[in-house]
Structure formats: structure tokens, C-alpha cells
């Protein structure tokens, strides 16, 4: 497994004071918090950061980590030394950071898998199981039709000896049509098992869309850019456009400027109030490479002598 340089992740020196570490964590957490940040890798960075802080904020864990020595480099192949944990004791506290403990193999090899205090109870009382949360990425097209996804979850289990292990739990989940990014889907009874005779918890899936090369999504509306020729923009045309619901015929009105939005009502994400599909016109310019093409453009300039593309006040230098 790969060695993780927690000091590097947090951008602090190996001899940083505890309050310095806390400050670095707060700063980076604000920058990479997935609910705030627009950085593409925010979620990964935030998780890494949470793990680094989990170790460095705890004097016991930090001392043990420092004991590995300063010569390890991030990404280096790592095995815990045989005398690891000798003289150190970890009091398996509640994890901060990303909620459900989801640590790297490196972390788990050093500190074990997060024990959750108070969960190993005998079934002498009844309590409804915890609700679980997970994220699922689907394609925009799936939101139009609905889809089925195999979802694998790691579920902590406690055996008869009281040891904690994780079991993989796979479900085939039907995701209904009309779902939008950021919405939650509830799967009743698929969370943690209840204690005693109580009901199990529910599983919540937060839906996200994979980035799409052609479509942008805003709430329930979908946008796509459509390049057209200058003559199509000037004189109008009927063109075929492939949309998430299939190919549609689109009438481009004469005199359309670049950036004009044509609305296809009800062709956005389906639902009680379906969204709209917006086609944003872009004017593609043929290049003037050959002599005859250049002559054509010169002739056009001649014909449109009074045309001033910079007629608006403030545009001209």
C-alpha cells in the first residue's frame, strides 16, 4: 500500500504545533469542503485532509505516526513495521471529517478500522438501525428514462467475539426517472439492521450527474450548444439536433445572433413540472484559406459596407 505523508497533505512542517495544525485544517477544510468548493477534486482532497487531521490532531496517533520516521515519501510502498503498536495505545475515538469512517488502507493498517462506540450492544433493547448515506453518479440520459444500478456498500458487522469487520453488501437499485442532481433517493429498510426486533434503518442515495460532453444541466433545465453556419443564422433554417430524448427538428429563425437561446418546452428532465431544453446558438465561421474563399469574404465586405460590428458605444477603442 502507499505511504501517506500527512504533513504534506496538511501543508505543515513535521514540528508544527497542535494549534498550527488546527489552523491549517480549518483553512483547507473551508477550501475543499465538498458542499462549498467548486474544485473538481474537492471530495478526494477533503477526505484526505480529514484523515491527515484525524492522525495529526491526536497526540497519541501523531506520536505513533512520527515513530515511523521522517524518511518515508508519499506514494512509497509501505508495510507497517513488525513492532508497530508496541507501546502505543489507541482509544478508538469518534471520527471527525467525512462522517462515516472511510479511511485509506494505509490508515487502517496503522490504526485499525474505526470502532464505533456504543454499537456493540447485545440485543437486550430495541433500537431502529442507523440510516446510511451513499452517493451515486448517473448519466443525464438515465434521468430521462430511469435506470438500475448495482450499488456496493461496505457494512460494518460485529461477530460473536465482538470483532468488527466490513462486509460488502450489493443491491440492485431502481432509480426512478425525473431525478435531478443533488436530490436524495430513499430506499426504505436498506440501512443498518435494527437492534432486537426494531426496524432496520433506511438508505439514502444522493444523486449526481456525470459530466457530459454536450449537455449542461441546471436544476431541471438542460442546455446544449448548437453550432450553425452564418447563412443559417442570417436567413433561418431547419436543422436536426440530437437531444437526450432523440433527434428533434429545430427551426432557427432568420436573423439569429450568436448566443440566442431557443427553448424546447418540456424537453428537459421529466417530472410533474418537466424542465425545458435550451439550444444555445453558436455561429461557426468558415475559414478563408483558398483564393476563391478569400475573394468571397472580400466581396462580402464590399456588399456590407455599412455593417459595423462595433457599432455599440464603448466597444470602439
Amino acid at each position: 500500500m502507499e505511504f501517506k505523508d500527512y504533513y504534506q497533505i496538511m501543508g505543515v512542517k513535521r514540528d508544527a504545533a497542535q494549534d498550527e495544525i488546527k489552523r491549517a485544517y480549518r483553512q483547507l477544510a473551508r477550501k475543499f469542503h465538498p458542499d462549498v468548493s467548486k474544485e473538481a477534486d474537492a471530495e478526494v482532497r477533503f477526505k484526505e485532509l480529514g484523515e491527515a487531521y484525524e492522525v495529526l490532531k491526536d497526540p497519541e496517533k501523531r506520536a505513533a505516526y512520527d515513530h515511523l520516521g521522517a524518511n518515508w515519501k508519499a506514494g512509497q510502498d509501505f508495510r507497517p513495521p513488525p513492532d508497530w503498536k508496541e507501546g502505543f495505545e489507541f482509544s478508538g475515538g469518534e471520527a471527525a471529517g467525512a462522517g462515516t469512517a472511510d479511511y485509506s488502507d494505509f490508515f487502517e493498517s496503522l490504526y485499525g478500522r474505526g470502532f464505533r462506540p456504543g454499537q456493540g450492544g447485545q440485543a437486550s433493547f430495541h433500537a431502529q438501525g442507523e440510516d446510511h448515506h451513499a452517493r451515486v453518479l448517473i448519466d443525464l440520459e438515465d434521468a430521462y428514462t430511469g435506470t438500475t444500478r448495482g450499488i456496493t456498500l461496505r457494512v460494518p458487522e460485529i461477530d460473536a467475539q465482538g470483532r468488527v469487520s466490513t462486509r460488502e453488501h450489493t443491491l440492485n437499485v431502481t432509480i426512478p426517472r425525473g431525478v435531478r442532481a443533488g436530490q436524495h433517493i430513499r430506499l426504505a429498510g436498506q440501512g443498518a439492521p435494527g437492534l432486537g426486533q426494531a426496524k432496520p434503518g433506511d438508505l439514502y442515495l444522493e444523486v449526481g450527474f456525470r459530466p457530459h460532453a454536450r449537455y449542461r444541466v441546471e436544476e431541471r433545465d438542460v442546455y446544449l450548444d448548437l453550432p450553425i453556419a452564418p447563412w443559417e443564422a442570417a436567413m433561418g433554417a431547419t436543422v436536426e439536433v440530437s437531444s437526450p430524448t432523440g433527434v428533434v427538428e429545430l427551426k432557427i429563425p432568420a436573423g439569429s445572433a450568436a448566443g440566442r437561446k431557443l427553448r424546447l418546452k418540456g424537453r428537459g428532465i421529466p417530472g410533474n413540472t418537466p424542465g425545458d431544453l435550451y439550444v444555445v446558438l453558436q455561429i461557426a465561421l468558415p475559414s478563408a484559406d483558398t483564393d476563391s474563399e478569400k475573394a468571397f469574404y472580400r466581396n462580402m465586405a464590399e456588399q456590407f459596407k455599412s455593417f459595423d460590428p462595433r457599432a455599440n458605444p464603448g466597444v470602439r477603442a
Binding site: T148, G150, T170, L171, T174, I175, Q183, I185, L187
Partner: peptide, 17 residues
């Protein structure tokens, strides 16, 4: 293995929830 997986249907938590 795929056909033996438990099948569950999700409910969207939308404005009507």
C-alpha cells in the same frame, strides 16, 4: 450473480416529499 441481487426501488425525495 447479477440476477440474484436483491432488487430495491428508490423513492425520489422531491418537493412533494
Amino acid at each position: 450473480e447479477k440476477t440474484m441481487l436483491p432488487q430495491v426501488v428508490g423513492i425520489i425525495l422531491d418537493e412533494q416529499a
